[in-house]
């Protein structure tokens, strides 16, 4: 006798039970993300005024976008500056974090300690603490005192480096880039905590047998890095590039300007349209980068 099919099979039931788990998140997504997103788009096309009872909206078409792009004297410049900064910083951050991860993945005394120190920026580099760092009196005093003690300033040191690079015949732009990188080393190191973490985890998951086999075949450490480590870790490079881009943009000048336009000069519509232009620029950039990198990415499975 064939049993009548009652309801769902066990697997189907399990599948639909999964929906219950997502429900809180989904409610949040609809209420606290999707609705504001649509509203923000609406505000960007209108003039928003706060009053006692709430707020009033008047549609103004593309005026806000026109204002942001052609009238506002700072916006376009800050936007291009933040994009440019990101283009300069992200490769440095990714290369540095890969390098640091390779170092930290080797076996040596004090590895646990140095790992702990390298991941420290994960908790310290975010938010206000980083913003207070700059322009502090006392720290400036100590810095200049220690520079006097060592007899030369940081400026002079990087000039030396530039001279050395020039005399060895390196291209002018590359020299500029490298010298800039050396000067911003603190910024780069502190913003690569999470990236190092991801890379270290990735390096540990590469099976040792690959290295053994290549060693038996006579590969040097250098070769095995480029032929094994690099391809195996390439999906993570994509992840890290995207993470760095987003992370870098969150603290950029443009976001500050968007915030100030809204809550200091109370031009909500303008601020919303700025935010949307910004978002569009980021997504185009991310899309291009993801396209370019994902072609080269090697997936082991």
């Amino acid at each position: 006798m064939k049993l009548p099919k009652l309801g769902l099979t066990l697997h189907q039931k399990q599948k639909y039970k999964g929906v219950w788990f997502i429900l809180p998140w989904f409610a949040g997504f609809l209420l606290l993300f999707f609705t504001p997103l649509i509203n923000s788009l609406r505000y960007s096309f209108s003039k928003l005024e706060l009053n006692e009872t709430g707020f009033s909206i008047q549609s103004v078409g593309w005026a806000n976008y026109r204002n942001a792009l052609f009238v506002d004297e700072h916006y376009v410049r800050t936007l291009t500056e933040s994009m440019l900064n990101m283009v300069i910083n992200v490769p440095l951050i990714v290369i540095f974090s890969l390098f640091a991860a390779v170092l930290l993945n080797q076996k040596f005394k004090g590895r646990a300690l140095s790992r702990a120190i390298f991941f420290l920026p994960v908790i310290l580099a975010s938010g206000v603490i980083a913003s207070i760092e700059n322009g502090d009196y006392m720290q400036g005093v100590i810095k200049s005192a220690s520079q006097q003690a060592s007899g030369e300033s940081a400026m002079f040191q990087s000039l030396e480096l530039a001279k050395l690079l020039y005399s060895s015949g390196v291209n002018h732009h590359i020299v500029q880039y490298l010298v800039g990188a050396v000067e911003r080393i603190y910024q780069i190191v502190t913003s690569s905590g999470v990236q190092i973490l991801i890379f270290v985890a990735g390096l540990q998951s590469i099976s040792g047998s690959l290295y053994e086999a290549s060693k038996i075949e006579g590969a040097t450490a250098y070769e095995s890095f480029w032929k094994i480590t690099f391809p195996m870790i390439s999906p993570l490079i994509l992840t890290n590039v995207i993470y760095s881009i987003i992370d870098n943009l969150l603290g950029s000048q443009t976001t500050k300007q968007i915030q100030e336009t809204a809550f200091k000069s109370f031009q909500f519509g303008l601020s919303a349209s700025m935010a949307w232009i910004y978002f569009a620029a980021i997504s185009i950039f991310l899309w291009v980068v993801a396209m370019l990198i994902s072609k080269k990415v090697f997936y082991y499975d």
């Binding site: 993300f33 504001p36 923000s40 987003i246 809204a262 909500f268 935010a275 910004y278 978002f279 980021i282």
Partner: peptide, 13 residues
């Protein structure tokens, strides 16, 4: 939700 900068939905929030 990861990709959208929080500033985009700042005012409506």
């Amino acid at each position: 939700t990861i990709l959208v900068p929080p500033q985009t939905i700042m005012i409506p929030t």
